[in-house]
Design a protein around this nucleic acid. Structure first.
Length: 883
RNA sequence: GGGCGGUUAGCUCAGUUGGGAGAGCACCACGUCGACAACGUGGGGGUCGUUGGUUCGAGCCCAAUAUCGCCCACCA
C-alpha cells in the first residue's frame, strides 16, 4: 500500500508534474460562491517585454503564499494574473527590432507597426508566464488578462470619457517633460533626477539705450534663443532702475523687456534671470503673468528649429557648445562656474529630458487626490510596513496634473476626434466620421495613445469585467491585498486608489504589502548592464523552486532590501531534504492498514502529547504570523518546529517504541508521527508547495490534494502542560549529560549506567517515565533513580540538574582534573546567573514596581540556580578531597 | 533643501505589545548509531554605532550625534 519515496530528494522529479496536476484539476480557479468568503489578489502585471527576475520571484512568491494559505483556510481565493502592454518600453523594443531590419516606424506606417508589436507580444508575452509557473504560482490562468484586451480597452475608453465629461480630463498647452529620443511627452513620475556636476554660465545682455548691460546666469545657455524677458526681484535695489527698460538678446538681437517678478531670488546667481517661457516650467509661469507669449526653439528630436537662426539644425548640446563659444567671442560671457544640479532623465531611455511647452492631454489631479488622501487617513488603505504611507500622502499632497497623452503608437488610442473644418473636439465611445457641429466629414482621430499607467490604474476592476456588472466584479472586488515593490507607489498604487474611488466608489484593496529590492551578494542592484543578475530559473533548476521561495521569504522583513546568497538557497534545499528524509523514515516504519484518521488521546504517551501540544502552539503562532503578514517569521517558525522539535527530538524519542515489542505503543507512535507530519505539510505548503504536495500524496489516507485541504486549527484540548514540562525537563537533562560527556571526551559508544538522585516527586515522575530516552539519547546503559547518593562512591561524573543530580560511574575513564575543570566552568556560569538575579531582586524598585509574575519568576530562578550551585560546590569539595 | 531607512556574532540578517541576546552560513572538536554527511552531537564567538534621557528594567521608547544607503524637490 505505501509507496516509498525515492531515496534522494530531487525536485526535478515532481515539480513540473505537480504544477500540471494542480492546473489540470482547476485548483487555481475559484468559483463565485456566496456561501464562502472571497479572497482576492491582483497580480502586478509584468511587462510583455520582460523575463522573470528576482523581483518578480519575490513578490509572486509572497502572493502565492497568501493565496495558498487563504485557499486552505476556506476562502474562494482568486489570484488573477496578467500582463501589461507597457506602451513606451515595448514600443522602444519594437522600434529597435525594425531598425535592425533597416526599417523605421514612419516608413512602415501605424498599421504595419502595430502588427509588428502584436507579433512581439505573442512571441515574448508568453515567456514570463511559463517562467512564473516554474515558481509554483497558484494563480487563475483562466481569468488571465492583458491590458490591451478588448474588454480592458473598453474600460480605458470608458474612464477617459467619464473623466472628460466631468472636466477631469482636459487638453492644454503646458510645459511637459519631452524625451527627444522617445519623441514623446512623459509624466513627471517618469522623470528620474540625477545629480550631476555641470556649469553655470554668467552672460551679460546689453541694454538697448546703451547705458550698460545686465548680467544673468544660466545652466542651459542654448535656451537663450527662446528668451522673451529678463526678470529681477522687485525688491532688488541693484536692479530697481532697470525695470521697464529693454535689453538686447545677444547673438539673436531680439529686444526683450526687463520685468519684475517676486519669483526671482536675489541671492542666487546674479539676481537676474532670463525668461524662456516655452522651455522652463517656472519661466512659463512668469511668462503667463507678464503676457510674454511663446517662442519654441526646438524640434521633436531636440535639435534647434528655424527660430534659432544661425543655430538651426544643431543638436541641443552642440548648439550649447557653439552658443557658448559665440558668446565668448562677442564678449558677452562673463564667467563659467562649476555648478551641481539635478538633471532630469527619461526613465526608459535615460536621455536628458527637455522641458517644453506642448499641447497635451492631462488629468486634473486635485479633485481625485483628495478622496484618495481621505481614504488613507480613514484607514481604508494600510501600508505594510506603515512608513510607506508617508510616501503616499506626500505625493498626493504635492500632486500636479498628470500628462497622459503619448506620441506613441503602441497603446490605447485616445477616443478623441478633431474636426479640421470647424476645430471641434469630439470625445466619443464610437468612431466619429462626421463632425457633430458643422457636419463636415473632415474629421480625424487623435493619433496619440495613453500613458501605460492609465490602463494599469484600472487593473483591480477592469480585469473583473468592468464596466460590465459581472458576477466576478460583484464577488471579488474590492481586492484584499496588493503586493508590489515600493518603487511603484506613485506610478501605480496611488493611481489605482484614486481611479478605483472615482469609478467604483471604494478603494481597490485594503492592504498594500511592499517588498524591497533583491540585491546581489555585494548589495548592488541587480541589473542587465552590470551583469550581476541572478536568474531565478537557474536557481530553480539547481535547487528547486521550494528552496528559492523559502530563501526569498525568510531572513528579511517587508519593505527592506535583501541580499541574495546562493548559500542560503542551499541551506533551504537542505531543509527540504531534511523533511524528505524524515518522511522516508516515517513511511518505512508504518505498518499497513492501521488507519490514520483520528488520534486516540487516551493512548498517547508523554512525548506524543508533548509534540502534539507543541504542534498546536505552532499552528496558532504561524497562523497569527500570516494574519499579520509576517511571512518570514511564520516560515521560520514552521522550519524550527520541523527541524528542532519533530526531527531532532520527537523522531529520536519515538524510535525505541517503533522497534520495540509493545504493539499498542508502537502503533500509537506511528499514528502520531503521521498525524503531526500531515499538519506539518499543511503548515509548510504555502511556503514550499511542491515538496509538501509530493510527500502528502505518498502518505496513507490522503486522497485529497494537499493544496485544497484545510488549514490546521488551534485546539485548546490539545494543550498538555504536564507533558510539555516533563519532556522539556528530560531534554534539558539529556543535553547536560551529552555536554558533560563531550567535555570529558567520552565517546557515545562508551555507555554507562546513569543514576539519578532526587528527592523531588515531580522530577522523579519525569525521570521514571523517561528512562528509555536516556538510554537512546544520552548513551545510558541503564537507569536507576535513588533518593540519595549513599553508597555511590566518588568515581563518577556528576551532572547537576534542577532538583536532581545524575551520576555516571565511569571509574576507569575519569580524569579528575578534567572533572574539576568542568565543574569550575559550571560554577562560573551559575555564579554569573545568580549575580544577575540577585542584583535584580535586591533592587527595591524592581520588587516594588515590576509585575508580580515577573518578580516571582526571578525568585524562582534564584532558588533554582542556588540549589544547583550548592550541588556543584559540594561535588567539587568531595572530588578535591579524593585527590 | 525635505523625507525615510540601515547600523545586533567573522558574513548575511531576524528580533511587533520594554522583562534572562537569536538563525543560517562560516569556524573548532567528536561521530558513520537501522531517515538524512544535503547529516548528528557538543562548543567558541556580540558592552545590539556613539552620547544623553524616560523607566524598577531599554536592542526595542524619546532626544541628540556619527556613518552608510534610498526617495522626493522647478532655485535660474
Amino acid at each position: 500500500m505505501l509507496e516509498n519515496l525515492p531515496k534522494t530528494y530531487d525536485p526535478k522529479d515532481f515539480e513540473d508534474r505537480l504544477y500540471k496536476f494542480w492546473s489540470d484539476n482547476n485548483y487555481f480557479t475559484p468559483k463565485v460562491d456566496k456561501n464562502k468568503k472571497p479572497f482576492t489578489i491582483m497580480m502586478p502585471p509584468p511587462n510583455v517585454t520582460g523575463s522573470l527576475h528576482m523581483g518578480h520571484a519575490l513578490n509572486n512568491t509572497i502572493q502565492d503564499v497568501l493565496t495558498r494559505w487563504k485557499r486552505m483556510d476556506g476562502y474562494e481565493a482568486l489570484w488573477l494574473p496578467g500582463t501589461d502592454h507597457a506602451s513606451i518600453s515595448t514600443e522602444a523594443k519594437v522600434v529597435d527590432k525594425i531598425k535592425s531590419e533597416g526599417k523605421s516606424k514612419e516608413d512602415m506606417g501605424r498599421e504595419a507597426f502595430l502588427e509588428e508589436a502584436w507579433d512581439w507580444t505573442h512571441l515574448y508575452g508568453g515567456r514570463i508566464k511559463n517562467q512564473l509557473k516554474k515558481l509554483g504560482v497558484s494563480c487563475d490562468w483562466s481569468r488571465e488578462a492583458f491590458t490591451l484586451d478588448e474588454n480592458l480597452s473598453k474600460a480605458v475608453e470608458e474612464v477617459f470619457i467619464r473623466l472628460y465629461e466631468k472636466d477631469l480630463i482636459y487638453r492644454g498647452n503646458r510645459i511637459i517633460n519631452w524625451c527627444p529620443s522617445c519623441t514623446t511627452a512623459i509624466s513627471d513620475a517618469e522623470v528620474e533626477h540625477e545629480d550631476s556636476h555641470g556649469s553655470i554660465w554668467q552672460v551679460r545682455y546689453p541694454l538697448k539705450d546703451g547705458s550698460g548691460h545686465i548680467e544673468i546666469a544660466t545652466t542651459r545657455p542654448e535656451t537663450m534663443l527662446g528668451d522673451l524677458a529678463i526678470a529681477v526681484n522687485p525688491e532688488d535695489e541693484r536692479y530697481k532702475d532697470l525695470i521697464g527698460k529693454t535689453a538686447i538678446l545677444p547673438l539673436v538681437n531680439r529686444e526683450i523687456p526687463i520685468i519684475a517678478d517676486s519669483y526671482v531670488e536675489m541671492e542666487f546667481g546674479t539676481g537676474a534671470v532670463k525668461i524662456t517661457p516655452s522651455h522652463d516650467p517656472n519661466d512659463f509661469e512668469v511668462g503667463a503673468r507678464h503676457n510674454l507669449g511663446q517662442c519654441i526653439i526646438m524640434n521633436e528630436d531636440g535639435s534647434i528649429n528655424e527660430k534659432g537662426g544661425a543655430y538651426k539644425g544643431l543638436e541641443r548640446f552642440e548648439a550649447r557648445k557653439k552658443i557658448v563659444e559665440d558668446l565668448k567671442e562677442g564678449d558677452y560671457l562673463v564667467a563659467v562656474k562649476d555648478h551641481d544640479n539635478a538633471v532630469g532623465h527619461c526613465e526608459r531611455c535615460k536621455t536628458i529630458i527637455e522641458p517644453l511647452i506642448s499641447k497635451q492631454w492631462f488629468v486634473k489631479m486635485e479633485p481625485l487626490a483628495k478622496p484618495a488622501l481621505e481614504a488613507y487617513y480613514k484607514g481604508e488603505v494600510n501600508f505594510i510596513p506603515e512608513r510607506f504611507g508617508k510616501i503616499y500622502t506626500h505625493w498626493l499632497e504635492n500632486i500636479k496634473d498628470w500628462c497622459i497623452s503619448r506620441q506613441l503608437w503602441w497603446g490605447h488610442r485616445l477616443p478623441v476626434y478633431y474636426c479640421d473644418s470647424c476645430g471641434e473636439v469630439i470625445v466619443s465611445r464610437t468612431p466619429v466620421e462626421k463632425c457633430n457641429k458643422c457636419e463636415s466629414d473632415n474629421v480625424r482621430q487623435d493619433t496619440d495613445t495613453l500613458d501605460t499607467w492609465f490602463s494599469s490604474a484600472l487593473w483591480p476592476f477592469s480585469t473583473l469585467g468592468w464596466p460590465e456588472k459581472t458576477p466576478d466584479l460583484d464577488y471579488f472586488f474590492p481586492t484584499d491585498v496588493l503586493v508590489t515593490g515600493y518603487d511603484i507607489i506613485f506610478f501605480w498604487v496611488i493611481r489605482m486608489v484614486f481611479s478605483s474611488i472615482e469609478q467604483m466608489g471604494e478603494v481597490p484593496f485594503k492592504d498594500v504589502f511592499l517588498t524591497g529590492l533583491v540585491r546581489d551578494s555585494q548589495g548592488r542592484k541587480m541589473s542587465k548592464s552590470l551583469g550581476n543578475g541572478i536568474d531565478p530559473l537557474e536557481i530553480i533548476d539547481e535547487y528547486g523552486a521550494d528552496a528559492l521561495r523559502f530563501t526569498l521569504l525568510t531572513g528579511n522583513s517587508p519593505g527592506n532590501d535583501m541580499r541574495f546568497y546562493t548559500e542560503r538557497v542551499e541551506a533551504n534545499r537542505n531543509f527540504a531534504n531534511k523533511l524528505w528524509n524524515a518522511t522516508r523514515f516515517v513511511l518505512m516504519n508504518l505498518q499497513e492498514d492501521i488507519g490514520f484518521g483520528q488520534l486516540d488521546l487516551e493512548s498517547l504517551e508523554e512525548e506524543d502529547k508533548w509534540i502534539v501540544s507543541k504542534l498546536n502552539k505552532t499552528i496558532k503562532e504561524a497562523s497569527d504570523n500570516l494574519e499579520k503578514y509576517e511571512l518570514g517569521m511564520g516560515a521560520q517558525r514552521v522550519y524550527d518546529f520541523i527541524w528542532d522539535e519533530y526531527c531532532d527530538w520527537y523522531i529520536e524519542m519515538v524510535k525505541s517504541r517503533l522497534y520495540g515489542s509493545d504493539e499498542n505503543s508502537r502503533l500509537t507512535a506511528q499514528k502520531v508521527l503521521v498525524y503531526v507530519l500531515k499538519d506539518i505539510l499543511k503548515l509548510l505548503h504555502p511556503f514550499m508547495p511542491f515538496i509538501t504536495e509530493e510527500i502528502w500524496q505518498h502518505l496513507p489516507d490522503s486522497n485529497q490534494a494537499l493544496i485544497v485541504t484545510s488549514w490546521p486549527k488551534y485546539k485548546s484540548e490539545l494543550e498538555f502542560e504536564y507533558s510539555e514540562n516533563s519532556i522539556e525537563y528530560i531534554k534539558t537533562a539529556i543535553k547536560h549529560i551529552r555536554n558533560a560527556r563531550a567535555e570529558m571526551n567520552i565517546a557515545p559508544s562508551k555507555k554507562a549506567t546513569t543514576i539519578f538522585v532526587t528527592k523531588d516527586d515531580v522530577v522523579k515522575s519525569y525521570l521514571e517515565n523517561g528512562k528509555r530516552y536516556f538510554i537512546n539519547l544520552a548513551s545510558a546503559e541503564s537507569i536507576q533513580i535513588h533518593d540519595n547518593k549513599d553508597g555511590l562512591g566518588e568515581d563518577n561524573i556528576s551532572v547537576v540538574l534542577h532538583k536532581a543530580e545524575a551520576y555516571l560511574p565511569l571509574k576507569e575513564l575519569i580524569d579528575f582534573d578534567k572533572e574539576i575543570e568542568r565543574l569550575e566552568k559550571e560554577k562560573e556560569k551559575l555564579d554569573g546567573e545568580i549575580k544577575r538575579v540577585v542584583g535584580k531582586l535586591s533592587n527595591q524598585g524592581f520588587v516594588a514596581k515590576a509585575p508580580e509574575k515577573v518578580v516571582e519568576e526571578e525568585r524562582e530562578k534564584q532558588r533554582k540556580y542556588e540549589e544547583m550551585l550548592d550541588k556543584v560546590l559540594e561535588r567539587l569539595e568531595s572530588i578535591k578531597n579524593i585527590k
